[in-house]
């Protein structure tokens, strides 16, 4: 459904150019959940931003259902692809109530029955009507992230791009948000592209994953291969080992 071929992203900051993504390719099937794993600076978030037009693509092709995406992206694209950001404290406008956060996309895209849609979106993410007129500062981190998910889903997209959706949250809240995302996907047949630094989260959420380092794709693994520790590269093996935690034996 979503095809990325030899994607390259270059940011030019004055004198020097920074190549954030160098030739990354992958395919995501309809209804699949695809993970991108990497450490900071690996370019994993930039890939997501390039897909939705927030980062400049300098080379390569991004296609949705075989159709290359227009530049700049049109309104129809945003109705099919939405994104959830990492930091729920930065992704909600501090002076807008939940109600205006959710009604804004409806107004822009010209949806009807707005009250009804907002009410349903809030119910879907498990918040309920009591939260509708609150400001972000009256919400906890987990509640904010639920609002962000509701905002992404209110346009009824087919693909949801998730940029570290739980890394700013406490472990117990992370479980709730992951369950929510999992349930929504099963219910609506959504397609996910999930970016995370946490192998456990990606293994829990995604059927296939791409490991990235320094802007390049290191390898693609299936969930089963990951569980079997059948990593083909040293880098992935190191990530796997680090995800277990600290081990004293190798301190020596």
């Amino acid at each position: 459904m979503l095809t990325v071929e030899n994607l390259e992203v270059t940011f030019s900051t004055g004198a020097e150019d920074v190549q954030a993504v160098r030739g990354v390719s992958f395919d995501v099937a309809r209804g699949e959940s695809y993970g991108i794993v990497g450490e900071s600076g690996s370019g994993k978030s930039t890939v997501l931003r390039a897909i939705c037009g927030l980062a400049p693509t300098s080379a390569g092709r991004i296609a949705l259902d075989g159709q290359p995406l227009p530049r700049p992206r049109d309104a129809g694209f945003y109705r099919r692809v939405q994104m959830v950001f990492q930091d729920p404290y930065a992704s909600l406008h501090p002076r807008h109530t939940v109600d205006s956060v959710l009604s804004e996309p409806l107004a822009i895209q010209g949806f009807d029955r707005r009250d009804e849609r907002i009410a349903r979106a809030l119910d879907d993410v498990g918040l309920g009507q009591g939260f509708r007129f609150r400001y972000p500062h009256q919400l906890s981190g987990g509640q904010r992230q639920r609002v962000a998910v509701a905002r992404a889903l209110i346009l009824e997209p087919q693909i949801l791009l998730l940029d570290e959706p739980t890394s700013a949250l406490d472990a117990s809240i992370q479980a709730e948000v992951l369950n929510l995302l999992d349930g929504l996907r099963a219910e609506r047949g959504l397609t996910y592209v999930l970016v995370s630094h946490d192998l456990a989260v990606v293994s829990h959420m995604c059927e296939r994953l791409l490991v990235m380092q320094h802007g390049q794709a290191v390898e693609e693994l299936t969930r089963d291969a990951l569980r079997a520790r059948a990593a083909g590269t040293d880098y992935t093996r190191r990530l796997l080992k680090a995800s277990v935690g600290f081990t004293r034996e190798d301190a020596a």
């Binding site: 472990a171 479980a175 369950n179 192998l199 456990a200 293994s203 829990h204």
Partner: peptide
């Protein structure tokens, strides 16, 4: 509540 690489508890 932590997800695990090997675990497949849903939810």
């Amino acid at each position: 509540c932590l997800p695990q690489i090997d675990g497949d508890r849903r939810p």
